[in-house]
Amino acid sequence: MKTLFRLKAMKWFWPLVAVALTALIVYGIEKAGLRPISLLEAGLLAMTPLVLTAVGECINEKAGVVNVGLEGILLITAVTGVWGAEFFGNGVMGLLVGTVAGALIGLLFGLVSVYGRADQVVAGMGINLFALGLVPYLLMAIWAFPGIHLFERKLMVRPIYTFFGRLSPVTIVAVAIVILAHILLHKTVLGFRIKAVGEKPEAADVAGVRIDLLRIFTCTLGGALCGLGGAFMPLAWFGGIVKEISAGRGFIALACVVFSGLEPLLAFAAAFIFGFAEGFAYSVAVTPGVKEAIPFYVVNMIPYIITLLVVTLVIGRRRFPAASGQPYARE
C-alpha cells in the first residue's frame, strides 16, 4: 500500500513543482512590470489550443489509438473555422464548424485505424502531409490569396474581462473540458471501458465491450477537441490565418500527452507550462530594450527547446497502455 501511494505521489510531484515554478516566474515578471502585453493573457491564449488537443489525445491514447495527425487537424480546422465564421457571419459558429470538421477527420482516422487496421503513425503523418498541401490550396481556392487570409475584426470571438485580465471564453471551456475528461476517465463506466480497451482489448472484448465503436468514438472526440483548438487559433487569438498557423502545436500537444502519462489534469499542467513558454517568448520579443538585444528568431526557438527539455527530463517515468498503437483483431 505504501509503495502504491509513493508511486502515485511520484507521478504528481514533479509536474506540480514545475507548475508552481512557472506560476512563480509569471508572478515575478508581472510584478516587475516587464509587460508590454500581459504575460498572463498571452500565456492563457497560447495554452488553450494545447490543452484541448492534448486532453482529446489523452482519452484517445487511453483507448489504445495514437493519433500523430493532430498538427494536420489543427491546420485544417483553422481554415474551416474561418470559413464557417465568414459563412455564418459569426465567430462562435466558426468555432463550431471547426469542431465538426475536426470530429469528421477524427472519425475518418478512427475508421482507417480500426477497420483498415492501419499503421497509425503512418496514417497520422498522412493527415499532416495532407493538411500541409490542402491548407494553401484552400486559401487560394476560397479567398484567392496565397498563404495568408485576414478576416473582419467583428468575426472574432470576444474575450471576457475578468480578474485575470482578458480571458477568452474558449479558455474557460477548455478548463471545464479538462475536469470533465478527468471525471470521464476515473469516475464513469465509459472511462473504465476506455482504459480496459487500451490495456487489455481481449479481456474487454470477452466482457462484451464493442472495441471498434469505442475506439472510433474516442478518435472522433479527440478530433473534435483538436478542431475546437484549431478554430480557436484564428478566431479567438490571431485574427487571421497563415498557412503555417499551427507551427508545431500538434506535436507540442503530443509532448504534453507524453508528459502527462495520459492524465488530463497533468496534460493541463503541461499545456500551462508550454503555453507560458510561448507567452513568455512573445512578451520578450516585443519588450523594448530586449527586442534589440535578442533577435526574434532566437526567441522563437524557446517553446521548442523547452518542449525538448521537458520531454527529455520527464520521460521514462511514464507508462502507456499495453495495446497502444495496436489494431485489435479477434484470434
Binding site: 482507417v112 492501419a118 498541401g133
Partner: peptide, 15 residues
Amino acid sequence: RAINGLIVIALSVPE
C-alpha cells in the same frame, strides 16, 4: 502535396 498526404494515408492501410 495534399494528394501526397492522401497517398500516404492509403498506403498505411494493409486491409
